[in-house]
Structures are given as structure tokens and as C-alpha cells.
Nucleic acid binder design. Structure first.
Lengths: 246, 246
DNA sequence: TGGGAATGTTGATGTGGATCAAACCAATTC
DNA sequence: GAATTGGTTTGATCCACATCAACATTCCCA
């Protein structure tokens, strides 16, 4: 934020990515590659890009060309209706993949916006296709990533279609907690990168409802909320909220 | 339904599929293949399967092994929560692909149920992977199919998260109409294969609301409804329902 | 460092769609 | 062709969440 523009530009070009030495390898790449294969991957991902908070990696309707693996930071993807209403379709963090929506029609269909200063690895799609024709494990991995995105969205549909407000928020918190855990962060304490409005948009609720439900969870002793800081005090309690069917 | 069991079994085995002569080729396969490539595909899809109304092609948790291209008929996919609540996540018709949810964890995550007697082409997934390493166009096509499924689900999320009942149903009808059109059927008249309850489940509404909204659309002169028979009388009218933002 | 814009909380009130309930209708089955 | 069954329609009532409103807090950056 404070760095002068020039410095920033230089930084971007200086960033030679190296999957081989990336701590997120297990997250976004197939495991069990031999040295040769890892080198190929290093050639595929030859640029990283910084994205400042509020900026987008890509916007709806833009020509599709690359996928983006999040190296650090936090994103939301949003869809905008003609009448201006918009909806958050997902929150993505380090190790997650952005841009797969663009393959189908060769143009992006949503906006990917950084919620904090972030860094992505640019994966030129043509190169990925090429390499995954050569490397079976890469092909398999990529298909799994896409399939998991389909399954994740199924889950959101279930949430939006069948759950009440408390259940939605409980599911949301448990999901975040689980994802932080699998990235080596605390499962029980984290900072929300998004606003109440963005959470509401994702969960099909109004921001007031999100706020009230947070307060209720706090009264119930499930969590403690201090603005963006969340501490989960009673995971089983939250899970019970999810379980009970009314 | 009336055919004796034996006859049915024989039929199944007699069905040698041939992509090369399939009328749905444009729908579910890449275009612009040469003779050699088409022959390869014929080898990939070597069985068809009949699925009777009410039966499933696969069920949640089952081991994943194949994708299924719908050759004829109509399906729904459903998700079931632990407490029994279930949700329809999609309706699929001829030319659509089933089973991509299973790739990620090597087991299916939803149920694919036939809403009428149907027929699917079985695509062994390993074979598809293999072939798409050899054939660039097939690889591209398959990736597009998966990506489009992601985009479709984005649309459903928008619908469930941001639209009111009338908008949801209008969007649903317009979508169905469009899909029938692109398959060469009438855009303005068709029979619903699903019940009001299934429509409601898909749209996050109760069956009574679906029924009432159909009635309202009829009063408004947008459609005529006679049980499962729908006739769309005023497409622009329906589109306007979708457009207005409250 | 202070003042204004975002963002978040909480209360009072309104409403779209859920729920409950009763007919109705069409398709099977006996 | 009466009885059963699964699906649909319609009305009356209710409630979860939206909306409107006032205020509190935090975060900027001028």
C-alpha cells in the first residue's frame, strides 16, 4: 500500500514462481511427481501477479486465457445481474483455484476480487492443457479440482435452498474453520476478510440477519465475535445447529 | 413397462452405441472430428444402459467409475442431508452429461434419478482420460462441459440467493424452454417431467408456492398450465418478470 | 490527528412465502 | 365404475427474515 508504483511493478516481474519450492504444493498440485515432472510445472507457471485489495484478477465478460492459483491472500467471486443486484458465489483462499468458469465460453462469467492484498500464480490455460496431455497425474489432478468445485457448489445450493439463517451461518463458519485448519491455521480463531454484507450475499441473507445471528451465536456461547475477529468456542454446538431440522 | 424382463435384458446387450451415427453428436461431443477420431470415440462408448423411471444411474457415496451421456429421457440429481431433507440440484435431458461430481473424491456425491424411462451412454472415465490425452479436441470439449456445469451452478446460486419466487419460476421456465429449443423441440409448449414438489425443491420453494405462481402466471397471461402441460404465451412478459428488481 | 465514510449493531415493524388444511383431479387398479 | 393413490390447487393463518431506522464503532487518509 505504501510502496511507490515503480517498486511494485518491478516486484511483479521479479517474482519468478517455482512450484517446486512452493509451500502450497500439496494444495494446488498433484503429489508424487518426479523431478522431471516438477520441472515441467515450473515452466508452466512462469508468472506471479500481485493483486491489491479491491482489485480484480479478472472480470465478467473478459476474454479467458489463464487460470489463477492463489498463492496468498483472500478473494471473492461475484456475479452481477442486469438490474444491478449482485451475489457473491464464493470465497477463495491460498491454494484455491480461480477462473475455471471461463473455460466453457472462452470468457469469464464472474468477477474475482481480492479482499486483501494477494498474490496469484498465473497458469496459462493452453499450457496447462498441453502439459496435462503429457502428464497423467496433472490431468487427473486438474479434473479433480474442477469436479470439487462442482461439488462445492452443490453444497451451496443445498445451503441456499434448504437451510434457515442459523444453519447457513453455522455451515459457513464451520467451513471456513475447516479450510483454515487444512492450511495450518487455527481452527478456532480467525479474522473474517469479508464484510457482513458479503457474507449475507453469499448466504442469501441480509447483512442485518448475519449480524443478528452472529450475536445470537455469541449469546448461545458458540462463538465470540469482535467485529471481524471470530473465535469458535463450541464446534459441536455449531454442528448441532446444522443438524437439527427446524 | 409391459415388456417381460427377459426381453428387456436382451435389449440392453443388443444396444451397441455408435457416436458416429448419434443424432446428439453435436450436443455431447466435440465437432469437427475426422473419421479416425470418430472411430476412437465409438470405442470409448461401448455400452448404453436403459434406466427405468424412478431408477438411478448412480447414487451418492457409490464408487465412481463412469460418466453418463443422456441419450434420451429426463433426469434429476438430488442431494440428501443427514436429517433427511433433500434438494434437487439439477434437471438433465438428452445431450447432458451426468456424473462429473464423482471425479473429485472418486465417489458420487448425489443421486441421478430418471424421471421417465431413459437411456444413457456409459463413458468409462479412465478411457475418457486416456483418449483426451490423445485427442486435443476431446480434451477441450470435456473441459468445456465441466466448466459449463460450474457456470450453470453459479446461475442457480444467483437464483436461490437473490431472486423472489416469481423470478425463480420465470427463470426456470425460460431455461427449460431454451433447452428444449436447442434440442429441436417446441420452445412454447412442453410437458414437465417433474412434479411441483421437485420444481420447488430445485428452486428453494414449497410446492404450494410453485403451484400458486403457475396460477398467477396464467392469470397474467404469460403461460397456460394444464397439470404437466405448459404453454408459454408471452416470453417477453416472462422475461420482464425476471428483469424487474422487486 | 481528526473528521467523515464505511461498516456493524440493535430495535420496531412489515411481508413473502411457509405451513396447515381441505378439496379437487387424473390415472391406476380391482 | 368405485376405490385408491399421487399429484395439484386454493384458502387461511403464521413466522422467519426483510426492511426501515437510529446509533455505535472502526478505518481511513487529508
Amino acid at each position: 500500500m505504501n510502496a511507490p508504483k515503480l517498486a511494485r511493478v518491478i516486484d511483479i516481474h521479479a517474482l519468478k514462481s517455482a512450484c517446486s519450492s512452493c509451500s502450497l504444493r500439496e494444495m494446488c498440485l498433484p503429489t508424487g511427481l518426479d523431478q522431471n515432472e516438477i520441472e515441467k510445472l515450473d515452466q508452466m507457471v512462469y508468472t506471479r501477479k500481485r493483486v491489491k485489495r479491491g482489485d480484480s484478477v479478472y472480470r465478467s465478460e473478459e476474454k479467458f486465457g489463464s487460470l489463477y492459483a492463489i498463492r496468498s491472500g483472500f478473494f471473492k467471486t461475484t456475479l452481477v445481474m442486469e438490474d444491478g443486484r449482485d451475489q457473491v458465489t464464493g470465497f477463495q483462499m491460498a491454494g484455491d483455484m480461480l477462473g475455471m468458469d471461463g473455460i466453457g465460453a472462452d470468457q469469464h462469467t464472474c468477477n474475482a476480487v481480492a479482499l486483501e492484498d494477494s498474490e496469484v500464480c498465473v497458469i496459462p490455460y493452453g499450457r496447462l492443457e498441453e502439459l496435462s496431455r503429457e502428464m497423467h497425474v496433472l490431468q487427473q489432478h486438474f479434473h479433480k479440482v474442477m469436479s470439487r468445485e462442482i461439488v462445492r457448489e452443490h453444497g451451496v445450493m443445498l445451503l441456499l435452498g434448504s437451510m434457515r439463517a442459523e444453519e447457513r451461518l453455522a455451515a459457513f463458519l464451520l467451513n471456513l474453520s475447516q479450510r483454515f485448519t487444512s492450511r495450518g491455521y487455527s481452527a478456532s480463531e480467525f479474522n473474517l476478510r469479508m464484510t457482513r454484507e458479503e457474507i449475507g450475499s453469499y448466504l442469501g441473507l441480509k447483512l442485518e440477519t448475519v449480524s443478528r445471528t452472529f450475536s445470537k451465536f455469541q449469546e448461545d456461547g458458540f462463538i465470540s465475535v469482535q467485529q471481524k475477529n471470530i473465535r469458535i468456542l463450541d464446534t459441536p454446538g455449531l454442528k448441532k445447529v446444522l443438524g437439527r431440522d427446524q
